[in-house]
Amino acid sequence: MKPDISQYPIVIEDLTVAYREEPVLWDVDLTIPAGALMAIVGPNGAGKSTLIKAMLNLVERAAGHVHIFGKTYPEQRHRVAYVPQRGSVDWDFPTNALDIVMMGRYGHLGWIKRPGKRDREIALGALHKVGMQNFAQRQISQLSGGQQQRVFLARALAQDADIYIMDEPFQGVDATTERAIVGVLKELQAHGRTVVVVHHDLETVPQYFDHVLILNVKAIAAGRVEAVFTPENLRAAYGGRVDMLIQKETGV
């Protein structure tokens, strides 16, 4: 019997994505429970970013379905906030940090309407949550990489969504930023939000997340970290390359 998919923030069925003839994702099934803080891990080219882009209709699906609280993504997009990779934009764009965070309000505003005082307050509050309140007026090219990442995170927070989908937010950031992001993730979870994060650092998975998807084109394993983040599953995804890390993790 099929479970009621409208209870789940994200349900993915038989998802296949291909670039030209090469399949990047093959027949992926995934159910993400409400309030989960889930890492997506896997080797380079495993399709991690592609998977979240397919959830957001940013890449075309060859087959399969994505349900957001039981409906399609376009019907539910106001409940989903996306944090793209920092390197996907040109940070020399002439604007400041606050203006970028305000973009998180555009989806609520609709066409033509300008953001108002309340939107500004929400944006400032979001900057505060990531520890960037003193950088609101700073030109974005003058921010460090970690600060730029936090601005992107604040922009998603300003959307006030139920589901947060993040593409490598920990990529190349400083320790302050890493702490700030982890703090925000835990807080989102404490407020019942669902968070999905493409992550590359296996070492921090048990510490930062409670759910994990181990991916290599196919979904190798998904579930609670303590249940599925095992040496066998990791070896199935990474091959022999993680043996040293696994020893460190499991202490054997």
């Binding site: 957001l56 209709n57 940013l58 376009p74 997009r77 106001h78 989903v80 996306y82 793209p84 996907s88 934009v89 040109d90 764009f93 604007t95 970028i100 973009m103 555009y106 989806g107 505003l109 066409w111 033509i112 300008r114 953001p115 922009r155």
Partner: peptide, 21 residues
């Protein structure tokens, strides 16, 4: 002038603009 914020967003971050609909 009318579509200022939309043009700004699409010019800065088209992928994100897409997720906003």
């Amino acid at each position: 002038a009318l579509f200022w914020k939309e043009i700004k967003l699409v010019s800065f971050d088209p992928g994100y603009a897409h997720t906003l609909g």
